[in-house]
């Protein structure tokens, strides 16, 4: 049985998360009944996995990034870049990321640097193949995976029932320190949760470059969650994570 011609656009809308609740219910009910449309939806998902899983997306060559960075229009007139770079010192991860982002630092202080590193690391992690070193939805695989790689043990609660399925984990570097990155999904969005040992300090929430960030401390570990989901949803993630990891 072929897919129904009148459902084709709706199946795409379902896959793309672009339907309102009423239409989601209608299409899901139809897919549950119709073998052809179910198979079509599975094919579209399989195609998406193929398009997104491989190195299909082109990345700008470094030479181009350098050319654009050197454009006279884009040089801040103070020519402070070198001094800021020196100030960032060895903590800067990736010369490219640094050269593209240092000029965004508007206020002094460690927070500004840290915030930028968290955003840069999150953006890098979204490049194909960079998100997870250990890819699994099983918390009992992710948590032991960190053993021996870092000298602390971050909690890895299962939050799939609350709409944040676990995607995996990886090691990352923030401010020159090795940190644990635990990756959750929210619908089609990615939540990176960075964890590292640090003295307790105040909770912070802010939005930077369009990404919501939530930071908190617990039991000698500092947590920084970042995603392109709404800040309110990230708050919800924070609450769930705290509730499930205590």
């Amino acid at each position: 049985m072929p897919a129904c011609a009148d459902q084709e656009l709706l199946l795409g809308g379902l896959l793309d998360n672009e339907l309102d609740a009423a239409n989601v219910a209608l299409v899901e009910a139809h897919v549950a009944r119709c073998d052809g449309c179910r198979e079509e939806l599975e094919r579209m998902q399989a195609l998406r996995n193929l398009l997104r899983a491989n190195d299909v997306r082109h990345r700008a060559p470094e030479s181009l990034a350098r050319r654009i960075g050197a454009m006279p229009e884009l040089r801040a007139k103070g020519a402070n870049d070198n001094r800021i770079l020196r100030w960032l010192g060895p903590g800067a991860v990736g010369a490219l990321a640094a050269s593209l982002t240092v000029a965004t630092l508007i206020q002094p202080g460690a927070n500004a640097v840290l915030d930028q590193e968290i955003v840069s690391s999150h953006v890098r992690s979204l490049q194909p193949g960079h998100l997870t070193d250990v890819e699994t939805t099983n918390q009992h695989i992710v948590k032991p995976w960190f053993n021996g790689k870092i000298d602390f043990s971050p909690p890895v609660p299962e939050l799939a029932d609350q709409g944040f399925p676990l995607a995996g984990g990886r090691l990352d570097s923030i401010n020159g320190k090795t940190v644990a990155a635990i990756v959750y999904h929210r619908r089609l969005h990615t939540v990176n949760l960075y964890v590292w040992p640090a003295r307790d300090s105040a909770e912070r929430s802010f939005v930077k470059d369009g990404f919501a960030v939530k930071e908190w401390s617990r039991n000698g570990l500092r947590y920084a969650a970042i995603s392109d989901i709404a800040p309110a949803e990230l708050q919800q993630f924070h609450k769930l994570f705290e509730a499930k990891s205590s």
Binding site: R57, H58, R59, A60, P61, L64, A65, I68, L74, R75, A76, K77, G78, N80, R83, I84, L100, T101, A103, T104, L105, I106, Q107, P108, V123, Q127, D209
Partner: peptide
Amino acid sequence: SVFTPKRVAGDGQVQQFHALILPHLDAAYN
């Protein structure tokens, strides 16, 4: 003063451009 915004006219806009537009270089290239 290095970090003071708009110390030189136009710097704020350059910074904004770096913050909002340049992160999408890969998207543009792709």
